[in-house]
């Protein structure tokens, strides 16, 4: 069923038990992003040291796609350098824009490739990008 290409088991697993959800008490920066078309919200804490992402924690309300995506994003980016993180972010954004034509780079995106199907549902791409855009904003502010 078409729906299964959207709701991969990996996505549903991350949705039910999201990783790094719950804000840490300390961080270099906190950002808040929302999706005005559906009301979903994410608050993200980011800590960086020497150009490296030391910690990401987040909290928010959202659909399965946005929650799972924030979970996968934090798994992927913690421990990476700012530059590496940007490469991964770019790969994920490209996957989302692929209109179902890309399966994603599994080495780079790991669980993130499960979101390939989302790119066929234009209304859901913003959901999948919510956490990632919050990270992008936070990291850019820290690097300033």
């Amino acid at each position: 069923m078409e729906l299964d290409s959207l709701y991969q088991e990996v996505i549903l697993d991350h949705y039910r038990t999201p990783h790094h959800k719950g804000l840490t008490s300390e961080s270099d920066i906190q950002v808040h992003h929302n999706n005005p078309s559906c009301g979903d919200e994410v608050t993200l804490n980011l800590s960086m040291r020497d150009g490296k992402i030391v910690d990401i924690s987040w909290d928010g309300v959202g659909c399965s796609i946005s929650i799972a995506s924030a979970s996968v994003m934090s798994d992927l980016l913690i421990g990476k350098s700012y530059d590496q993180a940007n490469v991964i972010l770019q790969a994920f954004v490209e996957l989302m824009q692929s209109k179902g034509k890309s399966t994603g780079d599994e080495v780079l995106l790991e669980d993130g490739v499960a979101f390939a199907g989302v790119s066929k549902f234009p209304a859901r791409i913003k959901c999948a990008l919510l956490g990632w855009m919050a990270f992008k904003d936070a990291a850019a502010q820290v690097m300033e």
Partner: peptide, 9 residues
């Protein structure tokens, strides 16, 4: 189930 997911199914 989030409304967005309800609508999608």
């Amino acid at each position: 189930v989030h409304p967005h997911d309800v609508g999608q199914v």
